[in-house]
Design a protein around this nucleic acid. Structure first.
Length: 637
RNA sequence: GGCGGCGUAGCUCAGUCGGUAGAGCAGACGGCUCAUAUCCGUUAUGUCGGGGGUUCAAUUCCCUCCGCCGCUACCA
């Protein structure tokens, strides 16, 4: 029996489960169920990532231990997966001992090989912020750096840590990509990865002495292993890499890692390099999916538009959610989620088409045949035709599913359902039922419908498994597997229940979730007009600053490094204006800077703000010079 | 700035290895009554992002411009 090992990423317990986690996990579950039907021995791994400073900090805030925090979130994930009928084979937690031992094992292996070596991280440490300050932060009088966050003088610290020799794997990775062009799918993601690797790779710091909540480095209790090394390793520890027993030998290498585009680099560059270093085979394929946008906007905690699947579960059954996510997004590109879109999709596809087909078929069998087929019948050409067309359809659908194009496959299935609805209208069973002489014909039509329904039901089963089971029960049918179904000459059916109750807009939007939803749509409208309110504007801090030193950034054409006095502090700015402004043009001038812009490193120098300048159509900057008498630090509003 | 992708009906998208375009949803009209006011049929709408070129012929190939997205950079 062929094996198939599929994984989701492990989810960081700093976040409650949302639609993104749900999407990835449902996709994995659908693939698992599909592969199982295709005769594979499937193993499906999911779990949680529980180490790291963030977890440590949030736990502290809530006055609980990191493990307690993780336990709470894990419970939420497991509950949701149960509701959504996710059949994972193992739920790994990075705090599980078999995982931790496995991580240490591979770490040790790389150490022995020399691919992990002790090194030094030289840095400037801010004690009050408990964090490292960039090399490029500005100096204080005594030569130490000043913390850009709190302004206090930092201490020079030389910290021991371990590095992974990533630089040595550049060519090997590129060769691997070339040999396995389908390793990363879709192709655009593969291009991104290769161009990134081509630019060269630096060795990777893979341990921290400042993080306590983590797996300790073997033989060095001062250090914990970097969370990404810890997390990625789950894919092998989850199938017993520590023991390297039969299970590991059977399932590794993974056949499919499902990941989101945000974690591409870790999976497509670092993870393969770690495995190469450890002489472990590489996963066969990584499928990169996009994000779910909410009303065309990225979901994020800060905008507060993260979608909790529980809201949907208040109105819809789990299969509806599974169906929508698989039907609506094509792998690779971002999907868009709107509540209206969700309601429409479920009502048209599942309620009107699929649910109703079963309902009307069952209704007729009840009404005309008293829920029982007593006759053995001959099928006419028309019925044979339906069988033939189903077989063609099935081939096409399976082909789509094999390529993980579930949206395409499902679309095709819906087309066939429409075809069956037409068949009913054309044959008019309700007229045949009026006279006894058409009994056999009526039987043949209804039986054909049952056979078609059961056949389609199998195709649908990986995506909507719960409904699929219900349908089998209605028709007293127990076989699974694909192909044209035949429940036999004589059989009974049970009363049809409503499989997908209709949810009207009124039902959905009248409760408080709907209100919330509506409010958000209103907000969206005002944003669309391009206007911002005053509070929003106030967030931008602009002040007058005096330039106290200017120099060109070495080896660049466009960049100037400026030291400015912003009133409260002195800070470094990097600006791409060297082609238009000379050092002497700017020295001692007063200008406007944006003070609270997120600092960014440019050419290795940390730029802590931005010079305000007008720019013309060619991008040429014009810096407004402020009158000399203006006080430094004056706020613009 | 570089690399890649995209821009097709009101909405979501398919498609054309060159012969002026489709599907679903929403809309309009009609039919049926087995069915969850469901189903079936008919039907409107598009200068296929703008401009230029190659060609007998371009939405499809080439160039250029505009807009959007992703990655990346000496953008901030």
């Amino acid at each position: 029996m062929k094996k198939f090992y599929i994984t989701t990423p492990i989810y960081y317990v700093n976040d409650m489960p949302h639609i993104g986690h749900t999407y990835t996990t449902i996709m994995a579950d659908v693939i698992k169920r599909y592969k199982k039907l295709r005769g594979y021995d499937v193993f499906f791994l999911t779990g949680t990532d529980e180490h790291g400073q963030k977890i440590e900090k949030s736990a502290n805030k809530q006055n609980i231990t990191p493990k307690e925090l993780a336990d709470r979130v894990v419970k939420r994930f497991k509950e949701l997966w149960e509701i959504l009928n996710i059949e994972y084979d193992n739920f790994i937690r990075t705090t599980d001992s078999y995982h931790m031992k496995g991580v240490q094992k591979i770490f040790k292996k790389l150490q022995n090989k020399g691919d992990i070596y002790p090194g030094e991280y030289k840095g400037h440490y801010c004690i009050s912020c408990e964090s490292f300050v960039s090399d490029t932060a500005k100096n204080s009088d005594n030569g130490n750096k000043i913390c850009p966050d709190c302004g206090k003088t930092t201490e020079k610290v030389t910290e021991k840590c371990y590095f992974f020799r990533l630089s040595a794997y550049r060519d090997k990775l590129l060769k691997y990509y070339e040999k396995h062009p389908d390793f990363i799918s879709p192709k655009t993601r593969m291009n991104e990865v290769t161009s990134f690797v081509k630019m060269g790779l630096n060795d990777l710091s893979i341990s921290r002495s400042t993080v306590k909540w983590g797996i300790s480095v073997p033989g060095d209790s001062e250090q914990t292993i970097y969370v990404w090394f810890d997390a990625l390793t789950n894919y092998i520890t989850g199938i017993n890499y520590y023991k390297e027993d039969e299970m590991f030998k059977k399932y590794w290498p993974a056949d499919l890692h499902i990941i989101g585009k945000d974690i591409l680099r870790f999976h497509a560059v670092f993870w393969p390099a770690f495995l190469m270093a450890a002489d472990i085979g590489l996963p066969k394929k990584e499928l990169v999916h996009g994000w779910w946008l909410k009303d065309d906007k990225k979901m994020s905690k800060s905008t507060g538009n993260v979608l909790d699947p529980k809201i949907l579960l208040e109105h819809f059954n789990p299969d509806s959610i599974r169906y929508f996510l698989m039907r609506e997004a094509s792998i690779g590109s971002d999907g868009n989620f709107s509540h209206q879109g969700f309601i429409d999709r479920i009502n048209t596809d599942l309620t009107n088409d699929w649910g109703n087909l079963i309902s009307r078929t069952g209704g007729m069998i009840e009404k005309y045949l008293n829920n029982e087929f007593k006759l053995s019948v001959k099928y006419s050409k028309r019925e044979e035709q339906i069988k033939k067309e189903y077989i063609t359809l099935e081939k096409n659908v399976l082909e789509s599913f094999d390529n993980y194009q579930y949206n395409k496959g499902l679309k095709k299935i819906l087309g066939f359902i429409n075809y069956l609805n037409k068949y009913i209208v054309e044959t008019e069973p309700w007229n045949l039922a009026k006279s006894e002489e058409n009994r056999e014909k009526l039987n043949a039509i209804l039986k054909t419908l049952v056979r078609a329904i059961l056949s389609i039901n199998a195709l649908f089963s990986p995506v909507i498994p719960e409904t699929s089971e219900k349908i089998k029960k209605i028709f007293n049918f127990s076989e699974s597997g694909f192909g044209w179904k035949d429940p036999g000459e004589i059989f009974k059916i049970n009363k049809v229940e409503q499989l997908f109750p209709r949810v009207s807009n009124k039902d959905f939007f009248s409760n408080k979730n709907g209100e919330k939803e509506k409010k958000m749509e209103d907000e969206k409208i005002s944003e669309d007009e391009g206007l911002i309110n005053f509070d929003y504007f106030k967030k931008v801090e602009m002040v007058v600053a005096k330039i106290i030193d200017v120099k060109k950034v070495e080896n660049t054409d466009k960049l100037l490094e400026l030291i400015v006095d912003a009133g409260t502090d002195k800070r470094t700015l990097v600006a791409g204006i060297a082609q238009y402004y000379k050092v002497e043009d700017l020295n001692n001038k007063k200008i406007i800077i944006v003070k609270n812009l997120k600092p960014i490193k440019l050419r290795g120098i940390l730029s802590q703000g931005m010079i305000l300048a007008a720019s013309d159509a060619n991008g040429r900057p014009y810096i407004p010079i402020i009158p000399e008498e203006t006080p430094v630090g004056a706020i613009l509003k």
